[in-house]
């Protein structure tokens, strides 16, 4: 069961690593100081969660790779994050909408995983749940503020929802090779989370005077290593120092 568990941990860890790195691009560039600090903190939480998940992935794999080896020495095709995490940061509305969509997914995922029969996964999930709840509250309040704000903020928020919507379906695709893990109570079936996710999303979008598009084609591929062109560029920036100076300590 260790190979499927390793893959499941990569899916969990890579989502947070890639989204965390993407969010860190706002550091020094956010529209106001408070949001600069907020986005840097959110990025840090994501990378901290990724650190724990990839550390455990390396231990489960048993091949001597630690979290740094997994983060810095895998190519895009070996990454298992959902595509929504790697899309360019876009404007502030895109960043906020993405944190709302993915953060809400994370809350539901951590809630389910905090009951895992695997004590390490349960511990990481219980910890991450508190952080993700905080992120969703921050992002959700901004979705309402932007959507129900000025004509400009409404238009930008609606455009962000339309841009990201086709990438939300992939979050709830349950990989076939995880079925034994789910049956054993080690991981959670993400397809069971979609109903609760959609209910909260609809509620918040309604309050924000925004609408979700109907019947759009859902993109997929990230969980199988088929990524957009954007991930390679992100990894190039994230990995260059570690690859230029392998084994460097500071």
């Amino acid at each position: 069961m260790s190979a499927p568990l390793f893959d499941a941990l990569l899916r969990l860890g890579d989502d947070r690593l890639v989204l965390g790195h993407r969010t860190s691009e706002w550091c020094g560039h956010a529209p106001i100081l408070e949001e600069d600090i907020a986005l840097a903190n959110i990025a840090l939480d994501h990378i901290g969660q990724a650190n724990l998940l990839l550390q455990y992935a390396g231990a489960v794999e048993g091949g001597g790779r630690d979290q740094d080896a997994l983060a810095y020495f895998r190519d895009a095709i070996e990454y298992r994050n959902a595509l929504i995490c790697e899309l360019p940061r876009g404007d502030f509305a895109v960043t906020i909408a993405r944190h709302f969509f993915h953060g809400l997914y994370s809350v539901l995922q951590w809630e389910a995983l905090s009951n895992s029969q695997d004590a390490t996964i349960a511990g990481i999930a219980a910890k991450a749940l508190k952080e993700s709840r905080y992120h969703v509250r921050h992002a959700g309040e901004w979705v309402i503020r932007l959507g129900d704000g000025t004509d400009e903020s409404h238009a930008r928020a609606q455009a962000a929802v339309h841009l990201l919507w086709p990438y939300t379906g992939e979050l709830f695709l349950q990989p076939v090779d995880e079925s034994a893990l789910v049956a054993a109570g080690l991981t959670a079936d993400v397809s069971t989370l979609e109903g609760a996710w959609r209910a909260t999303v609809d509620d918040v979008l309604h309050r924000a005077t925004l609408t979700a598009p109907d019947g759009v084609w859902m993109q997929r591929g990230g969980r199988a290593g088929r990524h957009t062109e954007h991930l390679g560029h992100l990894l190039a920036e994230m990995q260059i120092v570690a690859r230029s100076h392998p084994g460097a300590q500071w």
Binding site: E34, A38, L44
Partner: peptide
């Protein structure tokens, strides 16, 4: 409350 996030992960402004 000015900001949900502060100078460190554990504080708000």
């Amino acid at each position: 409350l000015r900001s949900e996030f502060g100078s460190t992960a554990c504080k708000a402004l």
